[in-house]
Design a binder for these strands. Sequence first.
RNA 1: GUGGCCGUAGCUCAGUAGGUUAGAGCGCCGGGUUGUGGUCCCGGAGGUCGGGGGUUCGACUCCCCUCGGUCACCCCA
Length: 424
Amino acid sequence: MAQPLFRAPVGTRDLLPPESGRRRRLVSVFADLADRSGFGLLESPIFEELGVFQRLGASNDVVTKELFEFFDKGDPPRHLALRPELTASVCRAFAEHRPTPPWKIWYSGPQFRYERPQAGRYRQFDQVGVETLGTDDPHADVEVIGLGLRFYEALGMKQVRLLVNSLGDSESRPSYVAALAEYLRSRHGELSDQARLTLERNPLRVLDSKREQDQPVIAAAPVMADFLSGASAEHFAAVRAGLDSVGAAYEISPRLVRGLDYYTRTTFEFAADALHTAQNAVGGGGRYDGLVEELGGPPAPGIGFALGVDRILMACDAEGAFAAAPAPVEVFVVDTAGGHSAAVLCDRLRQAGLGVDRAFDGRSMKAQMKRADRSGATVAAIVGPDEQAEGAVTVRDMRPGGGQRRVAEAEVVAVVTELLEGAD
RNA sequence: GUGGCCGUAGCUCAGUAGGUUAGAGCGCCGGGUUGUGGUCCCGGAGGUCGGGGGUUCGACUCCCCUCGGUCACCCCA
């Protein structure tokens, strides 16, 4: 293979049409849903001061090993990092601007994590998400979770399951973690080496182990539900009741743990059953009642989710949903006359709001017609020497059995529009 | 960071128990007489077989290194 001089860096890729257009449509479906639910768009920087992300958890790989960090040219240099997720940025923005709560925000964009790529995992990846800050009303949880569910539905996905759990608050969580750690230590000998390491860093995360060996131990582990404080249990019950009221199907997943340390109380995950890869979580989120404060802001509880665009699209492929489609071309302009006729014609048709493409390089009529066909255009507008001489255009219906006729330039838009109206 | 598998034309792949000019399909370009696509037919361009080193009379085929891809662990969306 002739080796290209450069290629996209490891874990990144170029998104070409029509796939790129499909992603854009996905975001616009999400944007529409978020807008209609009272969420406004937050566009935050792609990089932040390192400290913004260090609150995500000292035991967390995302912070300790996977950050793309760098220094700028300041004096002294500032220590910055490409954002590995967006919740921290949203909280930082909240702490910085002090908007009136509840602050309901949606976002989309690239995020960066230095990991070994694998199915559904890239170093640069896209997420869409929402966050509601400044309220711990269980109905805020219900609204956020419901929005996620409706989004998958809007894409035509059917095989997405919602898993929910509560991690408890600052009172109940520590006692659970202590009990869990004690239990895990009692079965230390049965755990994998990896799980033992995880146990020392963050006992909760052991519940996430995918190793066969750990499964029996995990299955018998104590569950958070038994350790919830009265207030947390009540909050969780209200969230569940709310979900029931809007007909949102969910499963209680007592051992569901989120990756980032800031989560409290409600946690949830969207699992794509169509995906048989290791990464079948197409989205996840939860409550993070202390994060804003940790970033120097006022006490402000929050809840949100992030949905992985790449994984969602993989799941769509597996389900046959939300297919990619090339940008629609309605009219293809064929020009064998030379001069500016084709340019003028294209411009006129586009000004009329039509989707128009054309050929270049003065190729043969046959070649241009072939292009017209491949473009998927319903109509070909042909300008050759004859047409040019009489100020006319040949309008050809490209559909099987479609005919053609020569019309005056001034009538082209009307004739084409009429043909297209009969197209559907 | 650890491990498995893979790396031949733009794409999807075939090929070689090591031996003359490396193949197919799709795509691309041209043509099938007199300006017109979708089917069909003919022709053509395009590959130093990821890169480097080694073994050999000779390697795309064997060995080593390296880069890249892919999948899994870890981590997470």
